[in-house]
Amino acid sequence: MWAFLGSDCMFFGTLIATYLVYYGKSLSGPLPIDVFSIPVTTVSTFVLLMSSMSMVLSYAALTRGRMKAFRIWLAATIVLGATFLAFQVFEFYEFANHEVVVSCDDDPTKWTDLEASLAAGCLTGAAGDEVSVRGFREVEYHAGGEHGPEIEGVYGLTPRTNLFGTTFFSLTGFHGAHVTLGVIWLLSLFFFSFKKGGVTPKKNLDLDLAALYWHFVDVVWIVIFTVVYLFGVFEGF
């Protein structure tokens, strides 16, 4: 198992290296700062960390022979893992359909680069309700928005959009596949534990390995969260 994890480290290492090589090399947007929502991802990261803790508790319960506690904690781990996956799916969908709204009456100095390029439509779009702005999809002009005239557009990130999209989705997708595999594995163990003698305090190697794998996947996520999300948003890094 350690050999497998070492090997897996190389997998992630290579993907992270690819991401870093191409970091900041995208020729067009959207960029990390445009799409990331740190609070949402922080919550999902927290969920995944909690699942690691419940995994520890589950294993501890098993070694002490408390089968019921073991199953509850194992189920908790599975639910938390699935929650993380749901977050990830939501996030991917959100990135692909990222909406930006600009109030044309706002102070232009407060616009980010992204908003500014959308706001370019404020000048040309006054005439009609359909405007085309480079990089944006489904751009619309509303003369009577909440705060005066508004431009609204979808600025989506997909694997094809740019280098950031390509490397980001591959890396996080690969990690997501690991979490999915982990959830399936734990689920199998969960059902298997109801079979007589399937998982017992003395026969805990299966759970031990699954737990090791689960912690590994968690640790990798910490690295990804730091390198991809935090580095991507905070310029100080």
């Binding site: 995208s26 740019n162 280098l163 390509t166 490397t167 591959s170």
Partner: peptide, 9 residues
């Protein structure tokens, strides 16, 4: 995708 796509950088 764009891993080795020169046109996308």
């Amino acid at each position: 995708m764009n891993f080795f796509n020169v046109a996308a950088g």
